[in-house]
Write a protein that binds this DNA or RNA. Sequence first.
DNA 1: CCTTGTCCCGACCGATCGTTCGGTTACTCT
DNA 2: AGAGTAACCGAACGATCGGTCGGGACAAGG
Lengths: 197, 197
Amino acid sequence: MTTAKRDTYTPETLLSVAVQVFIERGYDGTSMEHLAKAAGISKSSIYHHVTGKEELLRRAVSRALDGLFGILDEEHARVGRAVERLEYVVRRMVEVLTSELPYVTLLLRVRGNTDAERWALERRRDFDHRVADLLKAAAADGDVRGDVEVRLATRLVFGMINSIVEWYRPDGRGVGEREVTDAVAQLVFSGLRNQAQ
Amino acid sequence: MTTAKRDTYTPETLLSVAVQVFIERGYDGTSMEHLAKAAGISKSSIYHHVTGKEELLRRAVSRALDGLFGILDEEHARVGRAVERLEYVVRRMVEVLTSELPYVTLLLRVRGNTDAERWALERRRDFDHRVADLLKAAAADGDVRGDVEVRLATRLVFGMINSIVEWYRPDGRGVGEREVTDAVAQLVFSGLRNQAQ
DNA sequence: CCTTGTCCCGACCGATCGTTCGGTTACTCT
DNA sequence: AGAGTAACCGAACGATCGGTCGGGACAAGG
């Protein structure tokens, strides 16, 4: 077998350390010295694994975006009544948010100062539009209330879901992933769904 | 009369410029040179009006926090049935968010790297707890649904409201403040309020 | 006229930024 | 044992960071 044990860093393991620090201090507020200290290696050693600071950010947001876009390819997001596909996507978004928590957290805080950040913002907008179209279709079906504008509702629902990264912590037995998913679905759809149906 | 005209900077007018740049580039991503360029004066001139970069941040988040805490002192937030006080606070939060948009935006992005930031985070937590208590009281009255945990619901509602700063722009005639306020109230309370009452 | 104070500037400070480089350890394979 | 290489290090790079300093322009008040 090849290399049974590995107590050295790979780009992936280094990334998981870096992302933690990025979240705590902010990307711009994190120096390579901070990363080195957190990883337990010297500053220059980091460059043996990655080309620089920005690559770490790029890898992180890529992972988050892949997880989110992956939802749209799943069967329940593609076939069926629009309002039910929407509910499926909303529930899966919460699951991806919690399972890929640090990476999504970083994605949601990107401001667009560098090329990597601007690319991430663009892909994020794409995803938002895809979900907004789903809500629009559900509205056309008459399955969601009509007295709140679709674009506005989309943004508010996204806001609620995305805010999960601000407080959800998977380790402690505070609230489970399932509990959060259910709560979001209840709040969103008991507010959105047309009661008169 | 004293000093009829003023085409020079005051700490307040300088702050409004600085806050814009802070929002666009992030606080850590903004250098004093960036601020100087945006204000049209030299870097060293900024220090004639404020003691430094951190004071600008402190002034900004203070203004946001004053606006939010001011809500809790208003009459409709102090007297009446808990669920109605809660709705009033929610609506007023949206109004303060939109009217003090740049300052609240900055407040919500604070991470806690400096003393000023940690102080802001602490006061923010205080405010959150005050509103959470209101929701708890409404739950005790039986006015909000019981199948979603109060703490969880508070966080999700806060998430929805706070996310407004990510897209609301007062200048363009996209969506008006009143429209946003109504939409939030509808979504939140048609989801939260106990239908069986 | 001269002072006083506000407002601003260019030049510069030590510190820290992300990154590079030459070299050393330590493990793998033959 | 010896060669090759992955992993790492300390020292240093130019650039930029937040902040300081001494002084100039200009208006108000005497």
